[in-house]
Amino acid sequence: MSIMANRTITISLGILLGIAAIALLGPWVSPNDYTSTNFDRLLSSPSFKGLHLFGTDDLGRDQFVRTMLGVRVTLLVAIVASLVSLIIGVAYGAIAGLVGGRVDAVMMRMVDTLYALPFIFFVILLMVAFERNFLLIFVAIGAVNWLDMARIVRGQTLSLREREFVEAARLGGAGMLRIVTRHIAPNLVGIVVVYVTLTIPQAILVESFLSFLGLGVQEPQTSLGALVDAGVNQMERASWMLLIPATLLAVILLCFNFLGDGLRDYFDARHTS
């Protein structure tokens, strides 16, 4: 079965790519830019006049360009943070699961300890301790998200290691390297891919939350979370400032969730009869 035969995957991936394409090209095509203010047009509603498709904010800046910029930042944070959690989580979990025994016990108790830290507090501390830095947000979110990934990969590795086909490979003379690269890793791919698509929305939410608190990206840069924050302050006078970024955020989150569900179904259908 081709992966595109799955409608959930096709549709959600299509919407996500569409949003990403507009976010990349939109600001470039638009005559407006994200920093210039226009005090003649404060809080004007969406219109084709001056091509303010999403209206303007309380400083008269074009909301369309700012929203697209927010989408870029949000997607970037999500993907980089997920990559960070993917790399740390898979490596850590796979080593714990493969080596097993005492090493596994120590490694997993460390994960349990980290779980016990209130992680928002942890991120806020990081933000305060270091200069506010675009990059730090990625690292902070990724460094927190990898815990779940490590647990999942470790559990899966442990159960794969006991499966009969791995035992058959051991009997056949396969060494550790071959077992890991040919038998364990390929069987991990499905669950890891699915889990990554499910951590992306988490990372987006965390970034939005931090930005909403004012701890995320700083002006004049923006993200969907920061835009929603600004929109909330103006929601009685300029509802579009809240509704448009909030809707986009919701659509992106839903698409990633559906993509994860679709991928899970796809891998299930392919390898269990």
């Binding site: 499966r163 009969e164 086909f165 058959a168 490979a169 009997l171 056949g172 003379g173 396969a174 060494g175 071959r178 040919r182 038998h183 390929p186 069987n187 791919v189 390898h271 269990t272 009869s273």
Partner: peptide, 28 residues
């Protein structure tokens, strides 16, 4: 010394094709 299991599907790597499964011992 070789072993054949009761559950054949469980004893074959679900991510490998038949040709790779049968060829693997030769590779080793």
């Amino acid at each position: 010394l070789q072993l054949v299991y009761q559950d054949p599907v469980g004893a074959l790597d679900p991510q490998m094709r038949v040709r790779d499964i049968v060829a693997e011992p030769l590779l080793i």
